[in-house]
Simulated assay, not measured.
Amino acid sequence: MTWTVDEYYSKPLLSRVGYRLFRHPAVMFGVGPLWSLLIGPRIWAGSKPGKLRNSILLSNLALVIAVGSLMALLGVSEVLLVEAPLIVLAGTAGVWLFFVQHQFEDVYWDDTDSWSYSEAALQGSSYLKLPQPLQFFTGNIGLHHVHHLSSRVPNYSLQRAHDENEVFHQVPVLTVPMALRCSRLKLWDERSKRLVTFAEGRASAAAEPAPRPSTVSA
């Protein structure tokens, strides 16, 4: 979820504090992955259709049996010391990768009738240039723009699709240092059409009113 500058300043103080906490890196990349990848999927069974609900419940049961068996054989602390750091690191990396592929300064956002699927795919997601070992171990996830335009391209063909098609050569490119700075961006500024920090958003809100009210979520 990302608010616009004017949306943020239209909210009561408590809501703004909550949003600031939500957008804090410790929450987004620490607490967030634990909830969205570990806890959340395990407790949503009641709201799902029959087959999907049963699948979730059976998965929960399988996890309880598997983890319980490991703890019985090896010890609770031993299993947690190995598994907990792996879960946290993998979850944080996964959420961060997804975040920077959609939340960078010049990202394309449009909630009007002029919204374009191809423009959103090519300018609304980044080409995250990872070092070759990381690109391999993340399944070419950095080539997210290709996936957005055509989700049927398999991950092992993403690099070739990018290299062989001129349309992909003008997409936003992020290096790892650039991507690390993206967590500073908190609000969508409708005046400058870019993501900004809280400080930049405050300056923008004080300068002039936005062209029109809008709510943007990502």
Rank of each mutant, 00 (worst) to 15 (best):
T2A: 02
W3A: 05
T4W: 01
V5E: 07
D6R: 09
D6N: 11
D6M: 03
R16Q: 15
L21N: 06
P25C: 08
F29E: 02
G32V: 06
L34A: 05
S36I: 13
L37T: 05
L38M: 13
P41R: 03
R42G: 02
W44P: 00
A45R: 11
A45P: 08
A45Q: 12
G46Q: 09
K48R: 15
K48E: 15
K48V: 06
L52Y: 13
N54P: 02
N54E: 12
I56N: 01
S59P: 00
S59C: 09
A62S: 13
A66K: 13
S69C: 15
A72N: 10
V76L: 06
S77V: 10
E78Y: 03
E78D: 08
L81Y: 11
E83S: 14
P85G: 06
L86A: 15
V88E: 04
V88M: 14
A90D: 09
A90T: 14
G91K: 05
G91N: 08
G94N: 14
G94C: 11
V100C: 10
Q101M: 14
Q101F: 04
Q103T: 13
F104I: 07
E105T: 12
D106S: 12
V107M: 08
Y108W: 06
Y108V: 03
Y108L: 03
W109S: 02
T112M: 06
D113P: 03
W115T: 00
S116E: 04
S118K: 06
A120T: 03
A121C: 09
A121S: 11
G124Q: 01
S126W: 02
L128S: 02
L128T: 01
L130N: 00
L130Q: 01
P131F: 03
P133K: 02
P133C: 05
L134M: 10
F136G: 00
N140V: 02
H144P: 00
H144V: 01
H148N: 00
L149S: 01
V153F: 07
P154I: 12
N155W: 15
N155G: 03
S157D: 14
L158A: 04
R160S: 12
D163N: 11
N165H: 13
V167R: 09
V167K: 09
F168D: 06
F168L: 04
H169M: 01
H169K: 10
H169Q: 14
P172M: 01
V173I: 11
L174Q: 07
V176E: 09
L180Q: 05
R181N: 13
R181W: 09
R181L: 12
R181Q: 15
C182D: 12
W188Q: 05
W188M: 07
D189N: 14
R191E: 07
R202A: 15
A203I: 08
A205Q: 10
A207W: 09
P209F: 14
P209S: 13
R212P: 04
S214T: 08
V216F: 04
A218E: 00
